[in-house]
Design a protein around this nucleic acid. Structure first.
Lengths: 151, 151
DNA sequence: GTATGTGCAAAGAGTTTGCAGGGTA
DNA sequence: TACCCTGCAAACTCTTTGCACATAC
């Protein structure tokens, strides 16, 4: 993962450059997204921010994340039920998703570029984005009946 | 693509074997999903079925597709906005998705198995499903301002 | 004949939006 | 001080559900 502190500074710089204001609530969201490897959900981020700012609203979390998406400082991983976010690596990359505990992990795969080339040549598409998800059971969930934790 | 007539027969056989009833509405949905290469949405399927059965309800389309998902005779491609379906190839495969006209196409890519193996070995996940989507502009949409058609 | 499927309307979940009041630069 | 941001509640979209009536087998 990228250095969380560095990522936070990058995010702050981006927002300042674009003349967006750095409110305490926003800063709290940035910190969480910059440092998390667990691909937080909106709800999880909301609960975490509320520990510091109990009056924070869900709408503010949504609005802040929408802003970060707009300036490409967070990657949204959309599922039909809800979305998960990655502010540490805000660019497309493969994910391993545990169907039981909902953990999301980033494997370093080699060869995805080759597939992208093939796809381009076969279809003539001008590719601007991609998404590769593997679904299954993580090592922990293969063994015990681990609790379902949705980050 | 698989032979649409054959696919329809397979779907019918599956439902009969499991003692589900073959209503005219259901049959209409099966026909559409077995024969379509455009990865229909629920809404598109609904409009198409209504031409033959004007009193059909959206709920029936949803219920029929849910049934087909349950017996693995249709692949659901979920997006946060809505889902698209493939009854012709009801198993995981890569998709090319045009961001403009919403067309979805199936490229025959070589090498995805290698990535799956890598992912398994790197993470220890027991993989049961995957999804690979490429997003971009199809050849038509790269040129003209083609109309946005959502199947 | 009987259980299953249909159609309508209402409920549900996650997300977005409008607006009045409050805080940043 | 001026404008942007927050927080609350209502709205929105896609999908699911409950229930009375209809119908496939």
């Amino acid at each position: 993962m990228a250095d969380p502190h560095l990522r936070l500074q990058e995010m702050i710089a981006k927002l300042k450059n674009l003349n967006f204001r750095l409110t305490p609530q926003r800063l709290a969201v940035l910190k969480i997204l910059a440092a998390s490897t667990n691909h937080p959900s909106v709800e999880w981020t909301y609960e975490k921010v509320k520990r510091t700012f109990p009056t924070t609203s869900l709408a503010t979390i949504y609005k802040t994340i929408a802003l970060l998406k707009e300036v490409n400082e967070v990657l949204e991983i959309r599922f039909s039920e809800s979305s998960r976010f990655d502010g540490n690596k805000p660019y497309p990359h493969p994910h391993m998703i545990c169907l039981k505990c909902k953990k999301i992990q980033d494997p370093d795969l080699i060869g995805l570029e080759k597939l992208t080339e093939q796809a381009t040549q076969l279809t003539g598409f001008q590719i601007v984005d991609h998404r590769l998800d593997f679904f299954g059971l993580c090592p922990e969930c293969q063994i015990k009946g681990s609790p379902t934790v949705i980050p």
